[in-house]
C-alpha cells in the first residue's frame, strides 16, 4: 500500500510544481510577452547582463520607481543583491497604466517574491512623477 502513497505524493508535487497557477494571470501573460525575453521566465535574469527579478532586493528597496522603469527604461549602473549591473534597459512605452499595474503585481509575488501588491492609483501617481 505504501508505495501508492508515494506515487500520490509524487503526483501532487509534480502537479503543484510544474503546473503552478498564479494569482495574477493577466500580469503573468504580459510579463511573458514583454519582459521574459530578457529577465527570463523564471525571473533569474542572465549572468551579470540582465539583473534578476526573482528574490531581488532591488524590487523591495525601489518599489516607488518600478512603474517608471517599465515605462521609460533604466540606463544607470545599479546593484541587485550585491551584484553590479550596467546594461541599458529600454522602456516599453506601449504598455498601459493597467498593464504596468498587472505586471508589477505579478513580479512582486512570483518566484517566491513576497513584496505585497500595488493599486492602480499608486501606479498612476508613480507614472505622473517619472523623471
Amino acid at each position: 500500500m505504501n508505495k501508492y502513497y508515494i506515487f500520490f505524493a509524487l503526483g501532487v508535487i509534480m502537479y503543484i510544481s510544474s503546473c503552478q497557477t498564479t494569482r495574477f494571470p493577466q500580469g503573468e501573460a504580459a510579463y511573458l510577452a514583454y519582459c521574459a525575453s530578457c529577465h527570463m521566465e523564471d525571473g533569474k535574469g542572465l549572468k551579470t547582463l540582465i539583473p534578476p527579478l526573482a528574490q531581488a532586493d532591488y524590487l523591495q528597496k525601489n518599489s516607488e520607481d518600478l512603474a517608471c522603469i517599465i515605462r521609460n527604461g533604466l540606463r544607470a549602473p545599479i546593484v541587485v543583491n550585491g551584484q553590479a549591473y550596467d546594461q541599458p534597459m529600454a522602456g516599453i512605452p506601449n504598455l498601459s497604466d493597467v498593464d504596468i499595474n498587472n505586471i508589477l503585481n505579478y513580479i512582486k509575488n512570483a518566484w517566491g517574491n513576497d513584496y505585497g501588491t500595488i493599486k492602480l492609483s499608486e501606479v498612476q501617481a508613480q507614472l505622473e512623477g517619472c523623471k
Partner: peptide, 18 residues
C-alpha cells in the same frame, strides 16, 4: 479502485506537464 485512481492521477500529473 483507490490504487488505480492514485496511479492515474500520478500519470496524469506527469503527462499534463510533459
Amino acid at each position: 479502485t483507490f490504487k488505480y485512481l492514485v496511479l492515474l492521477f500520478a500519470i496524469g500529473a506527469i503527462a499534463a506537464c510533459e
